[in-house]
């Protein structure tokens, strides 16, 4: 019996956000505006999806002055690895 795919990650925009933050080095974060330009997202769209990832404990956002940055939590890294592993196991 396969584990179901994590519904928090299993949405195109959120998956791309997770891929991007997972590609950063440990202890690194990425600004909201760079994340937006990397994936050509509107601010509203990005905020909505980041909030869902943050509510699940996968992403941590930090506001410094007017700039916001996001990074993957340990929990998020584990969830992303599990998601990939589940996809791979679906291929058999």
């Amino acid at each position: 019996m396969l584990d179901p795919l994590d519904p928090v990650i299993h949405a195109p925009v959120r998956l791309r956000i997770m891929v991007t933050l997972a590609a950063l080095g440990p202890g690194d974060d990425l600004s909201f505006s760079r994340l937006q330009s990397l994936h050509q997202l509107t601010a509203g769209n990005l905020i909505t999806h980041l909030r869902k990832l943050e509510d699940a404990g996968y992403v941590l956002t930090r506001k410094q002055g007017r700039a916001t940055s996001a990074r993957l939590t340990e929990e998020g890294r584990v969830a992303f690895t599990t998601y990939r592993r589940t996809l791979r196991s679906m291929l058999g």
């Binding site: 080095g25 440990p26 690194d28 974060d29 990425l30 600004s31 505006s33 760079r34 994340l35």
Partner: peptide, 9 residues
């Protein structure tokens, strides 16, 4: 590196 913060920066 625009927007990248933390240890690497």
């Amino acid at each position: 590196t625009r927007g990248v913060g933390g240890r690497t920066a």
